[in-house]
Amino acid sequence: MLDLFTGCFEGGAYVCAGRKEGGFLQPRALLDRGGRILRLGQYWDDQKNEWTGVADSKHKEALGIGVAAVDWDADGDLDLLLGSNEGGLYLRKNAGSAAQPSFELDSAQLMAKGAPIHVPGGHLIPAVADWDGDGQFDLFSGSGAGGVWWWRNVGTKGAPKFAKERRLVADAIQGDSITEPKGPGQRTQVCPTDFDGDGDLDLLIGDYHSSPYVEGKPWEHHGYVWLVARNPAPAASGN
């Protein structure tokens, strides 16, 4: 059954659980095993109306905004990847089971080839899929600067390890039109998926375009969705 996981700019992680009869339940905040809302190091405190640090977090600078679920350690339950607004990526392991998740109290920063994973311009929102068909899940993210990054999993099942990042899609085009853009804009979010059913993974990319902010003038926003097809079938020719 499909569950929907999401992060948000407030800093929490949420799930809309799939229902046996179809559809979803309303979103509920994911909790760690201490009963706290599962966050990285910061969150927006509605009561105080300010950004607040998570007590005891080792990553106080990190605001979690993106979530992906994957069985990181191949123990049969879903662990969580948390991407930060600052551009880092973190793992929150599930020490429980698939039926009764129990997420650890803090996150571990993820590395690739000996350095912390980081995307330019921040805004790391993770995705997982097997891009190179080797049976191991790889990591993906867009970034504040736009584009799509890929980290190949060079580890083994249950012990993932990642190569240095590779760019799959270029950053946003400087000065691109916000109403008729030539390509994806900034703050990209990627969904690797076999869009055209041809057996390989394509990329769906969400983005952000806006007019310059000028006080007192309308501030125009757009968020488009793009397809970057991999090995697309040749377009039909003829008249």
């Binding site: 929907l4 996981f5 999401t6 992060g7 979530v67 992906a68 995705a127 997982v128 899929a129 097997d130």
Partner: peptide
Amino acid sequence: MLQIGIAVI
């Protein structure tokens, strides 16, 4: 910022 994770890989 809203993004959907895929629960099954």
